[in-house]
Design a protein around this nucleic acid. Sequence first.
DNA 1: TTATTGTAGATTGGATCCAATATTGTTAGG
DNA 2: CCTAACAATATTGGATCCAATCTACAATAA
Lengths: 228, 228
Amino acid sequence: MAKSDSLHHFQGIDVSQAGSASSIVFETLKQAIITGELKDGTPLKQEELAKKFSTSRIPIRESINRLEQEGLVKTIRYKGAVVASISLKEVEEMFDLRALMEREVMLKAVPNLTDDQIDEAEKYCLEFASAKTSGDWTDTNRKLHHALFQASDMTFHLSVLNTIYDRTERYLRAQLSFSNGADRAVDEHHTLIELCRAKDAAGAAELMFQHVKHAKRSLLEFLPPDSK
Amino acid sequence: MAKSDSLHHFQGIDVSQAGSASSIVFETLKQAIITGELKDGTPLKQEELAKKFSTSRIPIRESINRLEQEGLVKTIRYKGAVVASISLKEVEEMFDLRALMEREVMLKAVPNLTDDQIDEAEKYCLEFASAKTSGDWTDTNRKLHHALFQASDMTFHLSVLNTIYDRTERYLRAQLSFSNGADRAVDEHHTLIELCRAKDAAGAAELMFQHVKHAKRSLLEFLPPDSK
DNA sequence: TTATTGTAGATTGGATCCAATATTGTTAGG
DNA sequence: CCTAACAATATTGGATCCAATCTACAATAA
C-alpha cells in the first residue's frame, strides 16, 4: 500500500542491498579494478582478500564470481582469479558500440531534456574542463554523459553503456595521465550542450557519435599497438 | 504443502559427472530460464535446488549470483530469488538495440563470408523453415544468425547480442507457439542469404535491420499490452 | 645430464554448522 | 471484530572445516 508520500525522497535507496558483506566486497573490488588500482593480471587470492576485508572466503568468492560475470576478472579452476585484461580489438569494439548507442540515446534524450537537466550537464561540463586528475576527468565525464542520457529513459541501453565504461575506464585514465588531449573534448562538450538547448536532436546525436569516435582514436594511438 | 513442482525436471541430474558443480547448476538453471521451463516469478529456493542437484547450497548460491549478474533472476536479501520478468519497455529496447547492432555486424561480416559459411547458414535457413516446435525455431534461428555473424569477428558485439537473445528467447517461444508468424521471417532469411552471396553488404545489413524490427513488432502485438 | 615421478605446500571447491532476518500465525487487548 | 505485539518457522548470509587439484621442487633412474 502506498505509504505517506512525504517520504518519496528515499526512492532508490535500498538499505537491504547495501549491507551484505558480499556487496561491499564486490563494490570495493569493482571500483579498484575500474580505477586501475588493481592492475591487469593481478592475482586475486581468496585467503589474502579475506584477511584484508576481515571476513571469511565466502563473500570473496561470491564477489569474484560476480566480477567474472561482468568481465572484469578471469578465473581458472583450482588456479585462481586475475584481473582481466582487454585486447586492443575489444577496446575498438567497445568504443564503436558506444558511438552507435550514444547517438541513438541522444536522439531520444534531447526532446525530453528539461532546462534543469541541461543546466546540470553544463555544470559537469565546466567541472570537466577544470578537472586536474584523471580520476576527476573520468568521473565528471561519466556524470555529464549520464545527465544527458537520463532523459532518454532507455534503461537497458544505459546498463550496457555502463559496463562498457566500467571495462574501459582504467585505460582512459592511463591515457589521460600522460597526454592531456582533453581540449577537443571540452569544445565538443560545450557544443553538445548548445545543441541540446536548441533541441537539435539530430545534431546532438551526430556530434556525440563523432565525439566518441574521437575519444576512441586518441585512446588507440596511446595504447601499445600490440596490447595482447 | 504443495511444493512447487516446477522444478521436477532436475531430478536425476547429478554433479559427480564433470566440471564444477557450480558450472553445471548454473548452465542447467540458465537453460531452464531461457527456454521458459522456469516461468517468470518462480522462486528459486536454495535448499530445494540443493536437493534436486544433490549438492550443498554453496554451488546453488553461486549459480544464483551469476544468474542475477546476467539479469535472469532477481534476488532480495533474506527473501530469496525469483526468475526475473522483463518489462514491455525492456523488450522494445532490446530489439531496438539488436536491430542496430545486427545491422552493423552484417556490414562487417558480409565481405568476409566464405562460401562454406553461407552454405551453412542456408542449411539452417531450411531447417528453420521446416521447424515444428518453438524450441527448434529459436534454436535454428540463433544458429543461422550466428553462422552469418561469425565472419564479422566482433566478439564483444556478439556477446552482448547473446545476452539479449538469452533474455528474450522465452517470450519469442511463447509467441511462436501461439501465432506462427514465421512466414515473413522465412522469406526474409532467404533474401538475406541471396544478398550475402551477392556480397551486397549494405543491402544485407539493411534487411537484417528491418528483419529484427519486424520480429519486434510481431512480438509486441502478441505480448499483453501491460506486462508489468 | 635429463626426464620422470613423487611428495609437500598452496589454493580453490564444497559441505556442514551457526547467525541474521523475514514471514506467518497466534494471542492479548481494545 | 480488529489491531498490535510476539513467538514459531522458513530462508538466506556467513564462518569454519575438509576434499580436490594444481604447482614447485626434489629425488631417482636411465
